[in-house]
Design a protein around this nucleic acid. Structure first.
Lengths: 342, 342
DNA sequence: CTGAAAGCGCTTACAG
DNA sequence: CTGAAAGCGCTTACAG
């Protein structure tokens, strides 16, 4: 076999003529099903690329695909901003799609990967998407490198991912509330399946445990999304408990906005009657009344790092850790104070 | 000349050999400067496309370029959302870049257009960018269709653009304030050069005129950007006037957020002491205290329409109007009321 | 359904 | 600096 496969070498291996291979590649009719299958197998095995594909990959800026769950979320926008900044510096183009996570079934993943190879795409970054082992495998099988940012499920261990120190961030938030004197602290999470959400919750549990505070199952709630409306629903439940919490740690700033809204609607003063901590550090935390204490994530850095990791993988680097975590930082603002009642 | 130019036809026209044309196309050395120029001219004139370029354009989904001024602005995000929605339905891919407007000089535009042709891009949508006649010409010259959304300068008449009824929206806002009994009404605008800003201001002036209210030059301010910080700066100036306005019409919701902030810092009650109207209808207007009366733009529709227009142009349609305006709607919320002092 | 033959469009290596 | 010649990789048209 020559160093680079061409129609002739594929034809030779398959024991057919060059025109037959050409027909298979272009999906023309007039090829026996068994022949077609045999040729396709060899094409797959040799990793044949048409001249167009080859030129696409070598000439001009690389083009990476980006899938984002919901763009109207400021979180996604800030990650995107970081990705685009690094893209400009690295002379890389970014093709963006926004899809509902459930649209991307296994079949779609395979079709998607095929089309990415065809159009010479360099790799894929998925932000807050659902990503199964099979889907990941579909991309790997076609040689498309892939990086995820905060998937809404727990990804397989092989899947390269970039995020922040969610566990440490959650723990820092609760440490802060306990230092202020709180003991009745609730956790208001996002999708229970999301790994980042689980890590934040386990940071919460770890802090309680370290301070010998018993965890109350009633005080742990999960929304369907990291969204304000979910925050409203869960906060209403929490504050309607016979013994409501004196502090709520929300696993996102959007959820925390919902908490502030419910507090207002119930006439509770934040932070006098209720302390609230968010997570993300979105710009909005500086605009709320009171300004929101929040665990800040370096979102643009996460975006930048994800693209850097992807480009490294595309260049054949395999030394990258499968998971990169950037540091979070608790920023104390006006929404936390010692508990009032005691 | 054959129906489709190839190296042979170009060589014939230029009076050189096929290998020489090949060298010119790939920028190889060993070609006399005069020969190179002659060949390049003919390539330009005939619109020659390499087989790779041709295949790029014909196979797979079209790929359009999108340039966005500042992504962290929710305005841009919502437009983007509309574009991506229509892109998914039309099986079109979107390559996104975020650039400071001043980065795109004339030279860059030409280079950009060249690269777009090379990578088989279908067209360009520019959101809130600076776009000169020369830049537009650079894209037209290479056959790249282009659509702009709210450019921050006044675009040339030929440039296809999509926006909303800015003038009517501005007029509706002021009509509303005057109906409430206001006479001391200020206009707090964005970049004075932006056409959308000018249209909103002229709506303001038209309403004042129609109600025989004299326009006070002191009451008209322009920020450098449609941004909260500009709103803060201008609102401070307006409220420090010997006779401050009783109502402020801000030409964007972000500017209006700055006004609310200054009102709070000066202990003014909105809407009792000061009425505020914004423009855009971003989701945030439902979250402010009080909720913000605002002229709502159909931002996702604008995005959708921009892409639809671009694709129509790319398909050779020339019947499109050069300017499409979608309807705005004044949504009255809690930030406007009759003037208190009077 | 298959492939020998002709051909297209481009590139490469090299003689002048 | 230029181009005749050889060749590469693929496709097309058609005979069997």
């Amino acid at each position: 076999m020559p160093s680079r496969p061409n129609l002739a070498s594929i034809a030779r291996t398959a024991g057919v003529s060059v025109p037959t291979v050409s027909k298979v590649i272009h999906g023309r009719t007039g090829v026996a099903e068994s022949t077609r299958r045999r040729v396709l197998e060899i094409i797959d095995a040799t990793g044949y690329q048409s001249p167009t594909e080859r030129r696409l990959r070598s000439s001009g800026p690389a083009l990476v695909d980006l899938v984002i769950g919901d763009l109207r979320d400021t979180y996604a926008t800030m990650v995107l901003h970081g990705i685009l900044e690094h893209a400009r510096n690295s002379n890389v183009d970014v093709a963006i799609s926004s899809v509902q996570s459930d649209l991307m079934h296994l079949h779609d993943a395979d079709e998607w990967a095929r089309r990415m190879v065809e159009s010479g795409r360099t790799g894929l970054i998925a932000v807050t998407s659902h990503m199964t082992v099979e889907q990941h495998a579909a991309f790997v099988a076609r040689g498309i490198p892939m990086v995820v940012i905060d998937p809404i499920n727990t990804p397989d261990a092989e899947l390269p991912s970039v995020g922040s120190t969610n566990w440490a961030g959650g723990k820092a938030a609760i440490d802060h509330l306990i230092e202020l004197g709180h003991e009745r602290i609730a956790f208001l999470g996002g999708p229970a399946s999301a790994e980042c959400n689980q890590a934040r919750m386990h940071g919460y549990l770890a802090s309680l445990m370290a301070h010998d505070i018993r965890m109350q199952p009633d005080y742990v709630r999960h929304g369907e999304r990291f969204h304000r409306t979910a925050g409203v629903a869960c906060a209403r439940q929490l504050l309607a408990l016979p013994q409501p919490p004196t502090a709520i740690f929300a696993a996102s700033d959007s959820l925390a906005l919902g908490v502030l809204e419910v507090a207002r609607e119930r006439g509770l003063d934040v932070p006098r009657d209720l302390s609230v901590v968010g997570f993300d550090g979105l710009p909005i935390v500086e605009q709320t009344l009171p300004r929101l204490t929040s665990v800040s994530q370096p979102l643009t850095d996460i975006g930048r790092t994800a693209l850097r990791t992807l480009l490294a993988l595309a260049n054949g680097s395999t030394t990258e850790a499968p998971r990169v975590e950037l540091a979070t930082e608790l920023v104390v603002r006006g929404s936390t104070a010692p508990p009032h009642g005691g």
